[in-house]
Amino acid sequence: MVARRVILGVLWTAACWLATAGSVVAQEFPTRAIKIICAFAAGTAVDTIARVIAQDLSEQLKVPVLVENRPGANGSIASDAVAKSPPDGYTLVTGTNSTHAANVTLFRNLPYDPVRDFEPVAFVARLPSLIVANPRVPFRTFPELIAYARANPGKLSYGTANSTSLMVGESIKALAGIDMVAVPYKSTPLAINDVISGQIPLMVVEALMASTHVKSGKLLGLATPLASAIPLLPDVPPIAATLPGFEVSGWVGLFAPASTPAAAVERLATEVQRSLQKQGTRTRLEQLGFVTPAMTRAEFGVFVRAEKERWAKRIKELGIKVQ
């Protein structure tokens, strides 16, 4: 009986210590700079979001929050680096529908698993896209683009710098029954420059990256793959107006390496949500064209797993080649 009471006492003490330790970790974290590895180039939509959130986190957590760009391989280089980083909460990655949904199907030897190797921290925003063209193309609207492509099979090409743009382009081809050639680019800015200069006629691009050029007349905004027009460019119609039911949306969130202490992940998740609830931050993101729906950390984890399956199914249906 005495021995049993001793054992129960030890177990109770251990449980209390673990609970206290977790609380201490939550209170002490962070004690040094946090790094957000951005999976895409400087100046892209994902980079812009990362820097907005990093600024808020730095002010809220009272430590420097730095953004480091490591573009390449559709975001896989940055994601793999973070998956292999120490799981301490001090290194995060801007995961997207490319890095954490599409890539597992698009790349035959992806060096990480988007679910197993990461701890979801927070969903940040949806990324509206646009189909834009050089103003000298022989069409002015999306329906005219479809008509031209049908009359000239294989003569149109479009730039693509990520899985969202590739999915939009290939889905249009399948639903409209047209033939366009996808031209891959290492970064969105390179593709935009080539469309403006006339090297390629059109591309699918994040709305943020193209809006200024559309407003200035350097690019022609033809359509958005969202279900409805976006506030940033309300005069650009949805693809669904021509191809009913069409909708493709990109997204971005923050992820930590798997096995990161729960207390650190929860602290980060809480502070990201606090950032997104600030009226100034929400207004700024919305003015840049981003959509910021509320999503809990648990919901985000379920969302990522569902997105992985959804993108895999669609990629296979469209016959997109695995790299």
Rank of each mutant, 00 (worst) to 15 (best):
S58I: 08
P86G: 06
T105R: 14
V65N: 09
R116I: 09
T94N: 10
Q60G: 06
E144D: 11
S157G: 03
A102W: 01
V65W: 02
F123C: 09
A149T: 10
V137Y: 09
P135Y: 12
V121D: 07
T99Y: 03
A122S: 13
R116G: 02
S85H: 08
R136G: 06
P153Y: 00
V65Q: 10
L156R: 06
L92A: 10
E119L: 01
G95P: 02
F123M: 07
G75C: 01
G89Y: 04
S76T: 14
L145T: 04
L106Y: 03
R150A: 12
F142Y: 11
N152S: 08
P135I: 09
N162W: 15
K84W: 00
F107A: 12
L110M: 13
G75Y: 10
A151D: 13
A101H: 00
V82D: 04
E68K: 09
Y158T: 00
P138Q: 09
A73G: 01
T160I: 12
N152Y: 13
T91E: 12
A73Y: 10
A81K: 12
V124Y: 03
V121T: 02
S163E: 10
D117T: 05
A101N: 02
P114E: 08
A102F: 01
D88M: 06
P64G: 01
L106C: 07
P128V: 07
R150G: 06
V132S: 00
D117F: 00
A133R: 05
S76L: 08
S98Q: 00
Q60F: 13
P138M: 08
Y148H: 05
R126M: 03
D88E: 12
N162C: 14
L92M: 05
K84V: 04
A81R: 08
Y148L: 00
V67N: 05
P153V: 03
S85D: 11
A122R: 00
A125F: 04
S157D: 05
K84F: 00
G154W: 10
E59T: 14
N97A: 08
P87A: 12
R108G: 03
E59W: 11
D117S: 09
V63H: 04
A151Q: 15
Y90G: 01
A78G: 15
R108Q: 15
S76A: 15
V93F: 10
N97D: 15
V115C: 05
P120V: 06
T94S: 14
V121E: 00
T96Q: 11
L130T: 03
L156P: 04
G75T: 03
L92G: 00
L61S: 07
D113K: 06
T99W: 09
Y158D: 00
R116T: 13
L92R: 06
S129D: 14
R136W: 07
V121F: 02
P87K: 10
F123K: 11
T96S: 15
R116S: 07
T105Q: 09
V63S: 08
A151F: 04
P87S: 06
N103E: 05
D88W: 02
L110S: 04
D113M: 01
L110A: 12
T94D: 11
V104Y: 14
E59M: 14
L130F: 11
D117W: 01
A133G: 05
N74K: 12
R70I: 15
L66N: 14
